[in-house]
Design a protein around this nucleic acid. Structure first.
Length: 257
DNA sequence: AATACCACCAACCGCGTATTG
DNA sequence: CCAATACGCGGTTGGTGGTAT
């Protein structure tokens, strides 16, 4: 159940819009390191860990949204066969996708495939035969992979990586092509607060704001900056921790190390 | 129309690693 | 060099919305 806790105690569970905006604001000021510091100074009743996660998996403007493209799916399969469950490593090869996202995708895919295979091979087919000859038979690397995955008794989507599959030449080209895609925002559910809404709001505020003061030369979009700083100076009582506790640095290095 | 089931994904947790004093 | 702290990663859980019965 969702229970919104106020006061002293740490908040857990889903983030509110207000928390998101607050976090974006502080990340843009202090950078996306120093999470404990941000957690403290922002007044968010969240751990640094939680703040980082929210940023990395959801708020970061460089994230893609929406379903995996077939190309991305292919890449995931390929890299997973290479590296196993090294999600963050795989994620680095798919710009705009997070390790969490890829992990979830993989899990879902494996479950789906496991069920399919079960259905196909269930009535008295000798499934054990396929398990002995490691990467079996099909021309479909994905299918082979699935079979391999499924024959493992533990967590069915969990592999240690196969440390093989040397035939992935030209991967860099593929990745580069992927990177050509700009940030895609979601065509997500109506009426639900989403990142779209936030970014839209930020856009709206763009023309209205104080111009950027700090050049942290991050990947953060200018409009966020405008929005952030604009609002930063207008904090109400509950959000004043920062303004009373800190002075702005001359450069980002002082804050990001 | 109700409800049972499933897929998706956000968020938490534990632990290993890196950094800092 | 060591201890403390912060960060990052992978595994897992639980809520929500959609679909099937």
């Amino acid at each position: 159940m969702i229970h919104i806790e106020e006061d002293e105690s740490l908040r857990k569970g889903p983030w509110t819009e207000h928390e998101d905006v607050q976090l974006i604001l502080y990340v843009n000021v202090f950078g996306d390191r120093r999470w404990d510091f941000i957690a403290q100074v922002s007044g968010l009743k969240r751990t640094g860990k939680s703040c980082r996660l929210r940023w990395v998996n959801y708020l970061n403007p460089s994230l893609k949204r929406g379903r995996m493209t077939p190309h991305e799916e292919k890449l995931i399969l390929e890299y997973h066969s290479k590296w196993g469950n090294r999600w963050s490593r795989i994620a680095r090869k798919l710009p705009g996708r997070t390790d969490n996202e890829i992990k979830n995708y993989w899990r879902t895919l494996m479950r789906k495939k496991a069920q399919e295979n079960k259905r196909i091979s269930s009535p008295s087919s000798s499934f054990s035969n396929t398990s002995s000859s490691s990467s079996s038979c099909t021309n479909d690397p994905m299918a082979d992979l699935i079979v391999m995955e499924e024959t493992k008794e533990r967590s069915f989507y969990d592999t240690g990586g196969i440390e093989m599959v040397p035939q992935f030449s030209g991967l860099e080209n593929i990745i580069n092509n992927t990177m050509k895609h700009s940030i895609v925002t979601s065509e997500e559910k109506d009426g639900i607060y989403s990142m779209d809404d936030i970014w839209k709001d930020l856009d709206l505020l763009e023309n209205d704001g104080v111009k950027q003061v700090f050049d942290f030369s991050s990947e953060v979009t200018p409009q966020i900056w405008d929005y952030s700083l604009n609002n930063f100076w207008m904090m109400d009582g509950g959000q004043q921790e920062l303004s009373t506790n800190m002075f702005f640095p001359a450069t980002s290095e002082q804050w990001t190390g």
